[in-house]
C-alpha cells in the first residue's frame, strides 16, 4: 500500500491539481487507446498524419516561437527529411528504422546550412531569407530529375510498417517522444535563453551568453525534428515529391502554431489536433471547405490572439501573484504558498 501511495500522491499533486495537465493526460490516453475504439483505416490515417504534422509544427515553434527566428521556409527541413529517407530507402535499400534517423540528420545539416548565412539577419529579413531555401531546393530537385524523380517525385518507398496498427503506434510514439523531449528542453535553461533571444538579443549577449551558439542550436533542434516529420511522412504517403517543399507546406506550421499558441509546445499540438481533423471533417461540405476553414482560423485569431491553447489555459488556470505557481481556476488560495488568488 505504501508504494501505491507514492504515484497516487504524485497524480493528485502534479496532475489532478491542474486542469490542463488532466487534459494532457486524457489526450495521451485517448491517443493510445484510439485503435481499440476504431479500426477504420481512414480515421487511423488521419491521426497518423495529424501526429506527423504535430512534430512538424512543434519544430517550427522551437525555432520561431521560442527562439524568434522566423522561418517561412520550414518545408526545407521537412522536404530534406523526406527526400533523404526516400533516397536511402530506395537507392541504398536501407530499412525504414535506419533511413528515418538519417533523413532527420540530413535535415539537421540543412538547418546548419540555413543558419550560417542567416545568423546576422533578423525579423522580416530572416523570414524572407528562409523563404528562399525551399525554392532553391525545388530548383535542385528539377535540375537532377534522375536522382530526385523531378516533378513526379520518388515513389515506391517502403511502407513505414506492415500494418496500419503498427504504423499508428510508431508515429504516435515518435510524436509523443518528440513533444515530450522538446517540452522538457524548452522548460529548461535552453528554453529560457531562447525566450530571451526572441525578446532582446542584445541583453542576451550583454549577459555573456553566446547568442550565435543558441541560435544555431535552435536551427539544429528544429531541423532535426522537422526532418523526422518529413521522413515519417515519406514512408506513410510513399511519395517524396516537390509538394513537400512548396509554400503551402511552409505556411502550414505557421498557421497551426499561431492558432494553437506560439512558444508553448502545447500550442502547436493543440493547433494541429484541432485544425487538421477539422479540415478533414469539413469534407462533408466540399464547396465551402476551405472558406469555413479560413473563417474558423480568422475568428479564433480575432478573439483569441494568443492562440486557442493559451486562451483555454488562461481560463482554466491562474498564476499565483506571490509565487507564480499555476493553480486551477476553482482554487481560492495558492496550492503552494496559500496566497489568496484573484477571483
Amino acid at each position: 500500500m505504501y508504494w501505491l501511495k507514492i504515484p497516487f500522491r504524485f497524480l493528485r499533486s502534479e496532475v489532478l491539481a491542474l486542469p490542463t495537465r488532466v487534459i494532457a493526460v486524457l489526450f495521451v490516453a485517448v491517443l493510445l487507446l484510439f485503435p481499440f475504439m476504431t479500426q477504420d483505416t481512414y480515421l487511423l490515417r488521419v491521426v497518423v498524419l495529424t501526429a506527423i504534422f504535430t512534430i512538424y509544427a512543434v519544430s517550427w515553434d522551437v525555432l520561431s516561437g521560442y527562439a524568434g527566428q522566423i522561418s517561412l521556409g520550414h518545408a526545407l527541413f521537412f522536404g530534406v527529411g523526406a527526400y533523404t529517407t526516400a533516397l536511402l530507402n530506395l537507392r541504398l535499400g536501407l530499412p525504414q528504422h535506419a533511413a528515418i534517423p538519417l533523413g532527420a540528420l540530413a535535415a539537421t545539416a540543412a538547418g546548419i546550412l540555413v543558419a550560417i548565412p542567416c545568423l546576422r539577419l533578423r525579423k522580416h529579413h530572416l523570414a524572407l531569407a528562409t523563404l528562399a531555401f525551399p525554392l532553391m531546393l525545388t530548383g535542385l530537385v528539377f535540375m537532377f530529375p534522375g536522382l530526385t524523380g523531378g516533378e513526379l517525385g520518388i515513389t515506391r518507398i517502403a511502407r513505414l510498417a506492415t500494418s496500419r496498427l503498427v504504423e499508428y503506434y510508431a508515429v504516435v510514439g515518435v510524436m509523443l517522444a518528440a513533444v515530450g523531449v522538446l517540452w522538457k528542453l524548452m522548460s529548461s535553461r535552453i528554453g529560457l535563453i531562447f525566450h530571451a533571444l526572441r525578446e532582446d538579443e542584445v541583453v542576451v549577449r550583454a549577459l555573456g551568453i553566446n547568442a550565435v551558439r543558441y541560435k544555431l542550436l535552435a536551427f539544429v533542434l528544429s531541423g532535426f525534428t522537422a526532418g523526422i516529420a518529413g521522413a515519417l511522412y515519406a514512408h506513410v504517403i510513399r511519395v517524396a515529391g516537390p509538394s513537400n517543399l512548396d509554400l503551402f507546406m511552409s505556411f502550414q506550421p505557421v498557421i497551426w502554431t499561431i492558432f494553437g499558441g506560439a512558444a508553448t509546445i502545447y500550442g502547436p499540438v493543440t493547433g494541429v489536433f484541432v485544425l487538421y481533423p477539422a479540415l478533414e471533417y469539413l469534407r462533408a461540405i466540399p464547396a465551402y471547405r476551405m472558406l469555413v476553414f479560413a473563417l474558423l482560423v480568422l475568428v479564433i485569431l480575432r478573439f483569441m490572439p494568443e492562440g486557442i491553447g493559451t486562451w483555454v489555459r488562461e481560463r482554466l488556470e491562474v498564476n499565483c501573484p506571490h509565487c507564480r505557481l499555476r493553480n486551477a481556476f476553482t482554487r481560492r488560495t495558492c496550492r503552494a504558498c496559500r496566497t489568496e488568488l484573484a477571483s
Binding site: 483505416t41 481512414y42 498524419l49 504517403i237 511519395v239 509538394s243 503551402f248 478533414e280
Partner: peptide, 20 residues
C-alpha cells in the same frame, strides 16, 4: 474531392476516406 492541386496529403486522405 481530392484538392490535389493544393495538397497531396489532402488527396491521399480523400481516397483513404472512401476506399473502403
Amino acid at each position: 474531392d481530392s484538392n490535389e492541386m493544393v495538397s497531396v496529403t489532402d488527396a491521399v486522405s480523400a481516397v483513404e476516406r472512401v476506399v473502403g
